[in-house]
Write a protein that binds this DNA or RNA. Structure first.
Lengths: 248, 248
DNA sequence: CGCATCATTGAACAAAATCAAGCGAGGTGG
DNA sequence: CCACCTCGCTTGATTTTGTTCAATGATGCG
């Protein structure tokens, strides 16, 4: 199911989407010591409150950041696609104030903080780009605030799909990539809705022909879905590489 | 109403709360060229989509980041207290993907990107600290996602108050500081609730003795308010200086 | 086959939005 | 100084949206 992508490929793609990599830079990326671990769906990767000594790179599958309220309510705050580095912030903040959990069967790569720091120092352009990633991450959080605070259930769900679709595409995984796809429970945790309601909303979206049945990720009519979601990809700060999420 | 605080004082306090400033560093801060502008409540400071060439420092009053949906719904994504630099991200991201609006009568300081970059370069420790600020900002966004997605109206409003209280305290403005305080409309825009409902929720909180009448910001019973809000200040990443928000 | 996970359904219920006024304090202009 | 207007707060009635509870199908896998 998961094609064995060389882990460094993800980084090269990610950083190369913004910068023209020199041979030296490409080399530096490929020499990063990455240790790979596989996770089943719904498995804890890093716990809330941990003080990680390594950063984690998504290679295959989806991983999320989530927080658990004392009342046990789980809220997913962000979803990460291949090429993302979910806990980059811990590099400079020390603590991780949210948990990291795999959503699907996934492969993650781990790089020691030490190695990343050395890497960033030796390749300032790439180091800056990693920094920039944390800012983009923040922009995504901000948009989630808008999504949860300002939109109704239908738009929320549609917006999540739009974002995922656009980011996956930017990551070079145009939908085709099988194995991806969230359960309705996961969608509900990300949108702050009940499972039951997510189910009904999705039936609605399907009836309208905005999403396809099998497993999400297939978008029959991008324009109408984006419309329903009031989706404006600006906040993703994607530069070149598939641009801003045109059509499916 | 607004005591004329020397603008650099805010930065010294902010950065000094985390680092022991050397004389040279203190000097560098005080030599930053800051131009001050005053804004009435509810005034646009920077528009969404702008490409700012200067960063903006909150000196007095409250300022917020907000986005407007195409349907005209306004969502506040973050509130900034004196000492904060709301658009620090634009320094590296170029675009500002949200608007900046003053919530109360406020004084803001503007520093050119050029000056900040030179400053950060000349004072690496302080530059890093500015970077760190953007990460903390991201952590706050993430917590807002939890607040909007996972909590009911009462807890949402209470949580906002807890956050404001804690941040104001950390900024050295223990409540006493008059002139601060949000309207119920603004609270509703920040919590994603209707104005009417915010009103009712606040009446409830007052009846429970969790907040005082006059104008928010006075917290009669911090422990119970924090309890109602499920407030855990860890995400604010405040180090020393009033610690983590003990009692009012 | 039998278990586990995910999707779906219906009915009753709760939470919050909406609509539509009214109130009260502060500020402005006549 | 008072009338008037605006802005923010408050209220009640009603409707919408989403939740909860409790099952029941489906699908896939060992």
């Amino acid at each position: 199911m998961l094609t064995p992508v060389p882990p460094h490929e993800r980084l090269v793609h990610k950083l190369g989407a913004v910068l023209d990599l020199s041979d030296a830079e490409r080399n530096a990326i490929e020499n990063l010591p990455i240790s790979i671990r596989s996770f089943g769906p719904g498995t804890a990767v890093v716990a809330e409150g941990a003080h990680p000594t390594e950063c984690c790179l998504v290679i295959d599958g989806l991983t999320c950041a989530n927080k658990t309220g004392k009342d046990g309510v789980l809220q997913i705050t962000s979803v990460f696609v291949p090429g993302d580095i979910p806990d980059l912030q811990s590099l400079h903040l020390g603590v991780l104030d949210h948990a990291l959990t795999s959503l699907t069967k996934s492969r993650l790569g781990f790089v020691s903080h030490k190695a990343i720091k050395a890497f960033a120092h030796a390749n300032p352009r790439l180091g800056d780009e990693l920094w920039r990633e944390t800012l983009v991450q923040a922009a995504i959080y901000a948009d989630w605030v808008v999504n949860l605070g300002g939109r109704n259930a239908r738009a929320r769900v549609a917006h999540l799909f739009c974002e995922m679709h656009t980011r996956l595409k930017a990551a070079g995984l145009d939908n085709g990539a099988s194995g991806l796809g969230l359960t309705q429970v996961q969608v509900s945790e990300a949108t702050g809705l009940s499972t039951v309601h997510v189910n009904r909303v999705m039936q609605g979206l399907r009836a309208e022909g905005l999403v396809a049945k099998g497993r999400l990720l297939t978008v029959p009519d991008w324009a109408r879905l984006a419309e329903a979601a009031q989706f404006d990809p600006a906040y993703l700060h994607i530069r070149r590489q598939g641009g801003a999420g045109r059509n499916s």
